[in-house]
Computed example of a mutant assay.
Amino acid sequence: MANTLTRSLGIEHPIVLAPLGGESAGTALVAAVSNAGGLGILGAAYMTPARIGEAMAEIRSLTDKPFGVNLFCQQDWQRDPAKEAVFIERLSIYHAELGMPPVQVPQKFEEDFEAQLEVVLDHAPAVFTFTFGDLGPVRIQALQQRGVKVWGTATQVREAVHLAALGVDGIVAQGAEAGAHRGTFMGSRDDGLVGTIALIPQVVDAVKVPVIAAGGIADARGVAAVQALGASAAAAGTVFLLADECPISAAYREALLQAQDHQTVMTRAFSGRWARGLENRFMREYANADLPDFPIPNALTRPLRQAAGKAGKAEFLSLWAGQAVAMAERTSAANIVGKLAQGWRHE
Results as ranks from 00 to 15, higher is better:
153 T>V: 11
99 G>M: 07
14 P>N: 14
38 G>M: 04
267 T>D: 11
27 T>W: 00
263 Q>W: 03
201 P>N: 03
90 R>P: 08
82 A>T: 12
339 K>Y: 10
342 Q>R: 15
65 K>W: 05
56 M>C: 00
123 H>I: 08
31 A>V: 01
233 A>I: 01
206 A>R: 08
53 G>N: 06
68 G>F: 00
154 A>M: 02
294 F>Y: 15
124 A>C: 13
84 E>K: 10
30 V>N: 10
193 L>E: 08
208 K>H: 15
24 S>F: 14
302 R>M: 14
128 F>L: 07
134 D>C: 12
19 P>R: 01
65 K>T: 02
245 E>P: 00
134 D>S: 09
197 I>G: 09
21 G>F: 09
258 Q>Y: 13
84 E>N: 11
70 N>T: 09
225 A>H: 05
165 A>C: 03
5 L>W: 04
288 N>A: 15
266 M>K: 14
153 T>L: 09
15 I>Y: 01
9 L>N: 03
65 K>E: 13
144 Q>K: 14
67 F>Q: 01
112 D>Q: 10
116 Q>S: 11
32 A>N: 02
345 R>Y: 11
69 V>K: 01
29 L>I: 09
307 A>D: 02
163 L>F: 07
198 A>N: 13
150 V>D: 00
98 L>A: 06
275 A>Y: 00
260 Q>G: 15
302 R>L: 14
265 V>L: 06
332 S>W: 12
321 A>Q: 02
213 A>M: 08
249 S>C: 03
203 V>Q: 05
114 E>L: 15
213 A>Q: 03
19 P>A: 00
276 R>N: 08
105 V>T: 14
315 E>A: 14
160 A>K: 05
125 P>M: 12
33 V>F: 04
248 I>N: 03
276 R>T: 06
231 A>E: 04
209 V>I: 13
27 T>N: 09
197 I>S: 12
231 A>L: 03
248 I>P: 00
37 G>Q: 02
129 T>W: 01
121 L>Y: 13
60 R>C: 01
336 I>P: 03
112 D>P: 02
322 G>H: 11
249 S>G: 04
253 R>F: 10
266 M>N: 14
99 G>E: 06
248 I>F: 04
311 A>D: 01
167 G>H: 11
200 I>H: 01
282 F>L: 15
111 E>D: 11
171 I>E: 00
25 A>E: 10
8 S>C: 06
289 A>I: 06
107 Q>A: 15
45 A>T: 09
13 H>L: 10
156 Q>L: 10
115 A>Q: 13
136 G>Y: 02
86 V>G: 10
223 V>I: 07
13 H>G: 04
236 A>C: 06
296 I>Y: 10
155 T>R: 11
304 L>W: 05
136 G>M: 04
64 D>Y: 06
345 R>D: 13
205 D>V: 08
134 D>W: 08
216 G>N: 08
275 A>V: 11
189 R>P: 01
323 Q>W: 13
227 Q>E: 11
52 I>Q: 03
81 P>E: 12
209 V>W: 08
121 L>D: 08
134 D>L: 12
48 T>M: 04
221 R>F: 12
135 L>V: 03
162 H>Q: 13
290 D>R: 12
275 A>W: 02
72 F>S: 01
61 S>L: 04
314 A>H: 06
78 Q>W: 00
68 G>P: 00
116 Q>R: 10
338 G>T: 04
251 A>E: 03
290 D>A: 13
203 V>I: 08
51 R>K: 12
314 A>K: 06
73 C>I: 05
221 R>P: 10
108 K>H: 14
136 G>T: 02
